[in-house]
Nucleic acid binder design. Structure first.
Lengths: 150, 150
DNA sequence: GGGCTATGGTCTCAGACGTAGACCACCAAT
DNA sequence: ATTGGTGGTCTACGTCTGAGACCATAGCCC
């Protein structure tokens, strides 16, 4: 026992499993070849970045200028906004265009690739919003159990 | 020009856009109500964590013991592994089971919710692996342009 | 003119956070 | 007795983040 095969149905469909297999293969191969230079992992690092997703989502609505973007995201510092935008621009997800107005303004917009990244992102957001109640409950239960321990 | 409406076709389908709308609504409402306590955002924080995704993916193959997990992920420190596992467990994505063997062993496995999280995760991984060539090229181009500036 | 706004950033500094590695207690095999 | 393997914790160090000052420029108001 303690090892009973769980009865819950497989959640992943065939294409999802296929993608996972591809990922495992790439991860393994990359690790074998060149430790820590797995391409999928570094892309994930960027997408997984706290601010990048938020910026992408803000830009999904419309192009934004620097300070409009800062206001849209809410609690991001200029420093991190600059840095995240640089990374996003470097990765080709966001375009930067300077307008030679008196105080020069800069407009950031999603590129085609940036827009395409929204597809998996909304998947994630959808999952998150579908499960955040369950997660909150799990956290409460966990914290209660932990408090009981102490 | 510099402002021509881009001709690229809309990438998001209707359900995706709907999810995005929901996210924007939640984000806005949460920010209005209680700055920085947006539920979607904190779930995203966890999923977006560098190690959580890797752990989830490792566990998707089979349950792992602590040190097996560390070997599977590769370059994670015990400290971060412990911490990430605690968070994942707290959120109800991963279960922890202790076996009273002579050196007690601990087995971590995905819960049903953890498995369900793989669906959006593979979406992300799929996107990443589909685009990492383009991203690598974009980075090269960006770095070259930057070097030319200097 | 002096101060205020707003533009897009950069710079600095303190503090939070991640990492590597030692260490612990236990047991089996050598 | 040493070595290795179990799951962690603890500490010391270094990196990264966030808040805010600062820059140059051009209105605007008084």
């Amino acid at each position: 026992m303690t090892r009973e095969p769980k009865g819950n149905p497989v959640v992943l469909d065939a294409p999802a499993r296929a993608v996972l297999q591809v990922f495992r293969a790439k991860a393994g191969e990359a690790r074998a070849l060149d430790q820590s230079r797995c391409p999928v992992r570094d892309v994930l690092d960027r997408v997984g970045d706290k601010w990048s997703l938020l910026i992408l989502i803000a830009l999904s609505h419309a192009p934004h200028r620097f300070s409009a973007l800062q206001r849209a995201v809410g609690d991001i510092s200029k420093r991190m906004l600059t840095q995240s935008l640089r990374n996003l621009e470097r990765d080709g997800l966001v375009s930067r265009q300077v307008f030679a107005t008196k105080p020069p303004s800069v407009e950031y917009a999603l590129t085609a690739m940036g827009e395409s990244s929204l597809v998996p992102v909304v998947g994630l957001v959808g999952w998150a919003s579908a499960h955040h109640d369950a997660i909150r409950d799990a956290r409460l239960a966990f914290d209660a159990k932990e408090a009981a321990m102490a």
